[in-house]
Design a protein around this nucleic acid. Structure first.
Lengths: 129, 129
DNA sequence: ACAAATTGCTTGACTGGTCAACTAATTTCG
DNA sequence: CGAAATTAGTTGACCAGTCAAGCAATTTGT
């Protein structure tokens, strides 16, 4: 599944998967969001920092430091970034529909429910024995 | 979940996750199996080769080249390897039970069924549009 | 028999991802 | 105020995993 997404993004947008995730995160959380807000999305801050740097270098994202707090950077898509985001989004939505379309609504719900339970079980089990 | 397994293996056996997977693969497919047989288990052959080298260097696995075909290596656990395998297996089985125990039998079945469908959908969808 | 294809495996180069240490800016609190 | 704790973000080091190229042994086809 990962490889599929990677291939689509490379062919359609010239982006890596983490780059797309960040671009989409910013695109869907504008007008302003700091990396901290993105951090809440279970996205490693180190990876975020590095891939964001690429996006800024490519001119897809503009980052300007806050006036009051010089630590925070406000991120938004550049014109090119927004165009790329909006032209890529339909492809990724289509992929998502195609993936989830192989399952019934009930199956989708059960799948995510089970996944969540597994995650919780993995996190809570201590195994000090 | 991955991190949980990694921590258990580090604490109980001093193994990395891929090392354990290889050790368990050999341990459960003795008396003899070449890396090719392991390759069928969706295990990247490059990673297999490198991690196997570590296991051999650590004296947990013995590798002897086939008499007739000098390309293939027959792999089996050393004494220490077998002891480690058999002492680690219960911990990993307990983990698996704890994980799957958070789900009903029906949920487990539905989860793997959905996962398989998703994998197929990802593999088959072409997205040439 | 012997060149060409195949097979088993190794190596190199690269991306993704995680953790810990670090810097700098800011807030908290005695 | 000013030292200590917190927060935002960067960097370094490392492991997992994948892909392609390579090498040597073997099989195939003529």
């Amino acid at each position: 599944m990962n490889a599929q997404a990677t291939r689509i993004l490379r062919d359609k947008a010239g982006l890596s998967l983490p780059q797309w995730r960040i671009l989409a995160l910013i695109g869907s959380h504008e007008p302003a969001s700091s990396a901290k807000l993105a951090n809440i999305f279970a996205f490693d801050k180190a990876l975020f920092s590095r891939k964001l740097k690429d996006l800024v270098a490519d001119g897809l994202v503009v980052s300007e430091t806050d006036e009051n707090d010089h630590r925070v950077h406000h991120l938004k898509l550049s014109c090119r970034g927004r165009v790329l985001y909006e032209s890529t989004l339909p492809h990724m939505r289509a992929r998502q529909r195609a993936l989830l379309g192989s399952l019934s609504n009930g199956e989708v719900e059960a799948f995510f429910s089970a996944l969540e339970k597994l995650e919780n079980a993995a996190g809570l089990t201590e195994f000090d024995t």
